[in-house]
Design a protein around this nucleic acid. Structure first.
Lengths: 334, 334
DNA sequence: TTAATTATGTAAAGCGCTTTCGATAGGAGA
DNA sequence: TCTCCTATCGAAAGCGCTTTACATAATTAA
């Protein structure tokens, strides 16, 4: 391995000067040129461990997400968020570290991140407690997809999303609207359900308890269960708003299997706008989350925290807007 | 930050002994207990930079993929491969580093990885030259989705995949079979096209030049173009085998738009088995790549290279099998 | 010409850890 | 009792880099 000493020797300057030249501190032009020549000639690359050790700055951001629930790298929503996040932070020369989880305990994960000396942490995990918090966290962090007790979180405007969905359904003449809720320990699930109730009230619509069913963790399996329950009702809804696209898709399938049609018999609207949404039959009307934007905002917020380490903006919670995308799973009725 | 010195002071032993205790070298039981007590009490976490500096072992594996073509974190195929890869390496306590690309040059990327001192590199990039190779690469690496001039690559058995596809089509009575090729600078694209020709020959079928169209980089846009070209032909094919699901999906859409039906008028078969495949109408018959397995095999191979640094098995190329999954986009004709 | 600045470069300490090699103490063997 | 091992621990060097504090050379001002 070629080190800064080699460069020093080769260029005739001391390692101190070499270091300065490499870090754009002031050295004479002559020195800079000679040093850079040596660098190129010897193919020198500084060692980041040594640098990190000396500066306590790693230029690494740790990513934590909960893989127990399948919210991993391959998750359609989170992977896009991360992508947006990455695109932004790499502009500032940060690399991303995905740490291994060793099953479970947040504390372990946090310790590991501490061990790695990351400059910041992005947590993508929509449910559960602020466990990292309790561990006396000192590393700047940002939470994605749910607010936290401490500043630094970005998430979609879930309530507005529900309002958009319900209003659209109401505009189309629907009165008997059901809601397949996302898991009620997740922030998004709670907010979407609350928003649903509010919007129903605002439209002068009744929310019947039997129309409020839990679809669990946004999976197709959960959506399936929920929709079956809904279809077993004597007085079926004419429209269902599912708190996630996967659930909506499963719901549509169940409806079709039962011999009914979407949207002729029952309208369905989802949440997320995953890629799949536009490809199913009928194309799914849904509330789009701006994943790219969520990632970017999270990145901006985290970088800000990292640089203004002293308690910058107090209570930063960034809500990113959602939009209604109309496709063909909702129909006007009279 | 609490360091090994704090533990030494607190436990009454020297840092050397503390280090040994921490690394499971032999120390007396008494010392071990006292030291561990101190570790727990002070919430000590070793600093990985310091450790890496001293041992030149980082426990980090760098991931490189080409984001220019959209093969990023959110890519349905690669993200699953990485997930499989990650699941395996984390068993051995490696973390994954996604480095920022700074646009283009492989050399930059490699230098950056060198700078980071990663223990190994996984390259996910199916086209272009073995650029990393030329840079006098010394870090163990494994290539995913294409073979390389040096040992260490894992990829699907693309030729067999084509054979599976063509045989299935032929078995169903199709004779006029077209192939929407993947980009012919990618290994997979080339192999699938070759396999197609071979299998056609093996079935005594003619491969007409006008039935061989390039779909580009596996995108829907490319598939769309290609299919339009095919439909403009006087004598249309009765079946088309697309080298990627996205292209197949686009093809189906084009066919439907033209007023024809899938599979009644034209059968379509894809390659990959992305999640979308089962949700479109009709559900897509396709060749499934075992992404999880590809990732795992790559991980196994890389870890092996890392430990047996001395040129272990010479020419390791692992081909993972593909399977035909029959759904409803292919129909028997007479 | 001389004193006062300023520009430029370097020695040395320190970041937190591992590891070699030697020191010491206690126990075994004779 | 004395010598020789063994077991256990620690001093110190070193990993590659940054940074402070200072020395020296080059300029400028007077």
């Amino acid at each position: 391995m070629v080190t800064i000493y080699d460069i020093a020797k080769h260029s005739g300057y001391s390692i101190a000067t070499v270091s300065k030249a490499l870090n754009n501190k002031h050295v004479s032009d002559k020195a800079r040129v000679k040093i850079m020549d040596a660098v190129n000639e010897l193919h020198y690359t500084p060692n980041s461990s040594a640098r990190t050790l000396a500066t306590s700055k790693s230029w690494i951001i740790g990513i934590v997400f909960d893989e127990n629930l399948g919210f991993g790298l391959a998750h359609p929503f989170f992977s896009q968020v991360i992508e947006g996040f990455k695109k932004h932070v790499e502009l500032y020369n940060y690399d991303l570290l995905f740490v291994s989880r060793h099953m479970g305990l947040q504390e372990e994960t946090y310790k590991h991140l501490l061990h790695r000396g990351v400059d910041g942490i992005a947590v993508i995990q929509s449910f559960g407690e602020d466990e990292l918090r309790d561990i006396n966290m000192t590393i700047p962090a940002v939470y994605i997809d749910r607010p936290t007790s401490e500043p630094g979180s970005v998430y979609s405007d879930n309530r507005s999303g529900s309002r958009l969905a319900v209003n659209h359904l109401a505009d189309c003449g629907h009165k008997k609207i059901a809601h397949i809720m996302g898991d009620q320990t997740t922030y998004a699930g709670i907010q979407r359900a609350e928003g649903f109730k509010e919007a129903m009230a605002a439209n002068g619509l009744e929310v019947r308890p039997e129309y409020l069913v839990d679809g669990g963790y946004y999976s197709q399996a959960g959506g399936r269960e929920a929709m079956i329950r809904l279809l077993s009702l004597e007085d079926k809804p004419t429209a269902v708003y599912a708190a996630g696209d996967e659930m909506a898709i499963a719901a549509i399938r169940v409806i079709k299997e039962s011999g009914l049609k979407v949207p002729e018999d029952i309208s369905v609207i989802g949440f997320d706008d995953i890629k799949l949404a536009q490809h199913i039959d009928p194309p799914l009307t849904t509330i789009r989350q701006d994943k790219e934007m969520i990632g970017r905002q999270a990145a901006i917020m985290l970088l800000d925290k990292i640089s203004h380490t002293e308690e910058s903006g107090k209570d930063i919670r960034k809500m990113v807007p959602v939009t209604l995308v109309k496709r063909q799973s909702v129909k006007r009725i009279n």
